[in-house]
């Protein structure tokens, strides 16, 4: 086990982006009770699993818990894994389930706080001064988008992350979150609008549309 911990693996890989032969071999060995093989799988998939968890729950502390929970569930349920989908896909679903459960528990334990965020309907930080140069930067946009994502109500964040970041179809999102497709679509739209409000708050319209000829969008 300690030898495996020293194995150097790519720092980041998408959940579905590993060599399938390597993963399949490890899964087969792990299913036979080889714990080293499972730990190797953890090392291989944990960056992507953590990234997904972080995007779904919005903070590092909860993401750690979700990742831990996801791998425990995977470990316990490995014998039931039939291999219809790849291990990465299976782990992705488990992580989403764990994140959903975690967020439910968090919501129950801090209901008032959640209500404050959800009911405010306004994620715009009106006090923040924004430097136009920073606003124009795409990298900064992404950074602020990540911040805005973290501030979204949990139900909205999960849908928008699964749809727009991980490109899952509405049907799959609805299935994984236990909601209707219509609900998934409504939440997606609400999430995007909130992100849009946050991202473009206090920004001059001309800066929003940098690709358009200057002065042609007189909002």
């Amino acid at each position: 086990m300690s030898a495996l911990r020293a194995v150097e693996l790519p720092a980041q890989a998408p959940l579905g982006g590993h060599g399938s032969d390597l993963a399949d071999g490890l899964v087969a060995r792990a299913k036979e009770g080889d714990r080293d093989a499972f730990e190797h799988l953890v090392l291989l998939t944990s960056p992507a699993c953590y990234a997904l968890a972080l995007r779904l729950v919005g903070n590092e502390h909860d993401a750690r818990d979700v990742v831990q929970d996801a791998y425990l569930r995977a470990f316990k349920g490995l014998r039931k894994f039939r291999g219809d989908a790849s291990f990465s896909t299976w782990l992705h679903r488990i992580t989403v389930n764990c994140a959903a459960s975690h967020l439910e528990r968090r919501a129950r334990s801090s209901h008032d706080l959640l209500d404050d965020v959800a009911d405010s309907g306004n994620l715009v930080d009106s006090t923040a001064e924004r430097d136009p140069e920073r606003v124009a930067s795409s990298a900064d946009d992404r950074e602020r988008l990540v911040e805005a994502l973290a501030e979204l109500p949990d139900q909205l964040r999960m849908v928008v992350v699964l749809r727009d970041v991980y490109d899952l179809p509405h049907k799959e999102i609805a299935k994984q979150l236990g909601i209707s497709q219509t609900a998934a679509k409504v939440r997606l739209h609400r999430a995007r609008r909130k992100l849009q409000d946050r991202l473009f708050a206090g920004r001059s319209p001309a800066l929003d549309l940098t690709s358009t000829p200057a002065g042609r969008v007189p909002l």
Partner: peptide, 25 residues
């Protein structure tokens, strides 16, 4: 633009903080 930025997030690398993998193991 919001949707495009969201799509770009998937390619953004997130390094798990120290201790995550050790905690899992």
């Amino acid at each position: 633009k919001v949707v495009r930025l969201l799509h770009q997030l998937q390619a953004t690398e997130i390094e798990p903080p120290p201790g995550v993998v050790a905690g899992v193991l």
